[in-house]
């Protein structure tokens, strides 16, 4: 292994460990090596905490800035970004919060984080046209059962067990008095919801779905044919459910032939 690669591995490990001794190759002078390395450690943790703070503003408000910074630092050290596009960083934060002992008393936190990640995804998804509701009319009737849809790149589907959307909306209310009133009114034991999050032109939309609409959206988003996806749906509801998903812009493309490579599952 090259000496440089070996040094970069040790240096990287030092940055991601609290109080690790600096590599012996680092010169001191008027400032000790540990303090010099500490500047880089602060930059790494600070820059990535800033990224997480932008993606998870509701979580930060719910737990407070200090708690958030401590949780973020633990998360960053355990799971640094895989690449330089930092919009892709932090999708696992909800799973981390599930396991993060100090947050155990806040069972709804991971669901709020899932919702915020979906919003982040929608905000930074490629700008892509949505499939028009009439698109199915272009497909010959005898081929309609076999068509497959490709989910819009901004779409996330969330099956949540806690009232995360209500909490998210309340905690991000700007007016502090209104915020406190809305938060106090939340029934934390309320059931969760099926949600879809989609990129709008300006701001992401969060839609509440019935279990039937959610099931259909998920089946189609997973690449099932229209006939397969509609199989569990009551026949009298099929046309209106499908029309609803199309009108709301859930899909980016429709493909008439059987796709050799079904699109990746889009659930967040």
């Amino acid at each position: 292994m090259s000496a440089l690669l070996e040094l970069q591995r040790r240096f990287g490990a030092t940055l991601l460990a609290v109080d690790a001794a600096p590599p012996p190759e680092v010169l001191g002078g008027c400032v000790a090596p540990a303090a010099r390395v500490g500047i880089y450690r602060n930059n790494v943790i600070g820059n990535l905490t800033g990224v997480l703070r932008l993606t998870y503003p509701a979580i930060e408000r719910l737990v407070g800035a200090d708690f958030f910074a401590a949780a973020a630092a633990r998360f960053i050290v355990a799971a640094p970004p895989a690449g330089a596009d930092l919009y892709e960083y932090g999708g696992d934060f909800s799973d981390f919060l599930t396991e993060f002992e100090p947050a155990n008393g806040l069972a709804y936190l991971p669901d709020v984080a899932r919702l915020e990640w979906a919003v982040n995804r929608a905000l930074h998804a490629p700008v892509a046209p949505t499939l028009a509701a009439e698109a199915l009319l272009d497909v010959p009737a005898e081929q309609q059962a076999d068509v497959r849809f490709v989910a819009h790149p901004s779409l996330s589907l969330l099956a949540l067990t806690h009232p995360a959307r209500t909490i998210w909306e309340a905690v991000l209310t700007e007016d502090a008095d209104v915020r406190a009133t809305r938060l106090a009114a939340i029934d934390l034991a309320a059931p969760g919801e099926h949600l879809a999050v989609l990129g709008g032109n300006d701001a992401p939309q969060v839609l509440r779905l019935s279990p039937a609409a959610f099931g259909l959206a998920r089946a189609l988003g997973d690449g099932q044919s229209l006939a397969e996806a509609l199989d569990p749906v009551a026949p009298e509801k099929a046309a209106s459910l499908l029309s609803l998903l199309l009108t709301q812009g859930f899909f980016g493309e429709v493909r008439a032939a059987v796709d050799q490579h079904p699109p990746e599952r889009q659930e967040g």
């Binding site: 440089l4 690669l5 970069q8 990287g12 880089y40 820059n47 990224v51 690449g83």
Partner: peptide
Amino acid sequence: GAVDHAFLADLLPLP
């Protein structure tokens, strides 16, 4: 800024 598929989000110094 990256080693072993970890991107460290800073401009780190080289020998």
